[in-house]
Design a binder for these strands. Sequence first.
DNA 1: AAGGTCGCCAACCGCTACGTA
DNA 2: CTACGTAGCGGTTGGCGACCT
Length: 257
Amino acid sequence: MGRTPCCDKNGLKKGPWTPEEDVKLSNYVQIHGAGNWRILPKKAGLQRCGKSCRLRWTNYLRPDIKRGRFSFEEEETIIQLHSVLGNKWSAIAGRLPGRTDNEIKNYWNTRIRKRLVRNGIDPVTHAPRLDLLDLSSIIGSTLCSQSLLNPQLLSLANTLLLLKQENPEMVLQYLQQNQICNSQVQHQAPMIQSQSNMMTNCSISRENLTASTVPFVYENSAYSNSSSTFIIGNEIERFNSLLEFEIPEDLNINDFL
DNA sequence: AAGGTCGCCAACCGCTACGTA
DNA sequence: CTACGTAGCGGTTGGCGACCT
């Protein structure tokens, strides 16, 4: 038959750990090592179940845990890994030294997820939320009739549209740097007089989008498909932190196509 | 100043895969 | 092979502090 029960739950303490309990647990693990959580509480003199001890150790007391704010690089890594792995918090934590799955999960749910939603990006699929866009100008257009509505291209165009709302100047720079937009548009300071006029000076051909943009996005990422939105999504954040912009109300995706 | 609301995060709950008797 | 314990994982909860009204 099986083993004896791991612990008798009657009389065991629950709730927040006291400093005294932390010391007992830390001292015991430092001497005897982590593991065998079933007998650990008794030997360490703790009125806790082994599971509670294991969680306390792995999520809080472990000496290699890095505490404090997540860096921009860590945040980028989390978003990128989440776009590939989904809610596999332990797998994500395994690639972020010093961070626990619980910490990453909390950070995702309280910060990153909300911010992605705010920027019009679905936190589950990491794709732009099409329901937030007026796609009437696309559906039924020549794009469709010519079978050129490839999902990646549409996804990229949508992302650029969102990005334009956030930061039109950056969109221009991005397009020009990657030879997607050939026109010589003057770089101007933020709070430009008319963002929409500026954009109409740019011509972005479908050939350029498929031949230049998508490979550019991919070669800057270890992942495929969904990562295209991720890369640009980060650009939104990066520039948001630097600049403030007016958001034009007369946006149309045709500005990009 | 007091009560209400919100956000953060540590800890718990429940489930699953795997190991062991 | 079966039954059960253990470890690990992801989802959820609840306490607490900060902020708002």
